[in-house]
C-alpha cells in the first residue's frame, strides 16, 4: 500500500488504554474527510482488536500493544499487535461466540464485529510470539 500518512502508538496492556487507542486512531483518520459513520466503524473495530490484545495477549503479565495506522486516498489500514502468548487455533478464535474467557463475560463477538465493520481482516499469530491483526477499510475522499 502506498500511503500518504502514517502513525504508530504503543502503550501498556492496561484496559484504561482502550479509550486512548480509539481516540488516537479516530483523530488520525479524521484528517481524511470521512463520515461520522465510517469513523464510528473504525473506532469499534479498533476497540475490539485492542481489547483482545489487552485481555488475551499477555494473560496476567504486562506487555506493550502497538497500533499502526496508515492511509491513502482509497483505504485505511490499521494494524494491532501484541508480543504475548499468541493464538493456537486462529480459525476457532475467529468463530462467532468463541471465547477463551467466559468467566470475564467476553461475548466472543470481537472478530465478528471487526469483520462486519471493516472490509478486510487478517489475523497472524504464532504461539509464544504474539498476534497481529490487520484491518482495512475502503474510504472515498
Amino acid at each position: 500500500m502506498n500511503y500518504i500518512n502514517e502513525m504508530k502508538i504503543q502503550f501498556l496492556n492496561k484496559s484504561v488504554n482502550e479509550g486512548l487507542a480509539r481516540v488516537a486512531v479516530a483523530s488520525f483518520c479524521a484528517q481524511l474527510d470521512l463520515t461520522v459513520e465510517t469513523i464510528a466503524d473504525i473506532k469499534t473495530a479498533v476497540s475490539e482488536a485492542v481489547t483482545n490484545a489487552i485481555v488475551h495477549g499477555y494473560e496476567n503479565m504486562s506487555g506493550f500493544v502497538t497500533v499502526c495506522c496508515v492511509y491513502n486516498l482509497n483505504e485505511i489500514e490499521i494494524t494491532v499487535s501484541d508480543y504475548g502468548r499468541g493464538i493456537e487455533d486462529i480459525t476457532e478464535a475467529r468463530r462467532p461466540l468463541f471465547t477463551s474467557s467466559p468467566d470475564e463475560e467476553r461475548s466472543g463477538m470481537g472478530f465478528t464485529v471487526m469483520e462486519t465493520f471493516m472490509d478486510y481482516l487478517e489475523v497472524k499469530s504464532s504461539v509464544g510470539m504474539g498476534t497481529t491483526v490487520i484491518m482495512r477499510k475502503k474510504v472515498q475522499v
Partner: peptide, 12 residues
C-alpha cells in the same frame, strides 16, 4: 460508544 464488551455485560 459501545463495543462487544457491552454485549458481554448485558449477556452476563
Amino acid at each position: 460508544f459501545m463495543d462487544s464488551s457491552g454485549i458481554g455485560v448485558i449477556m452476563g
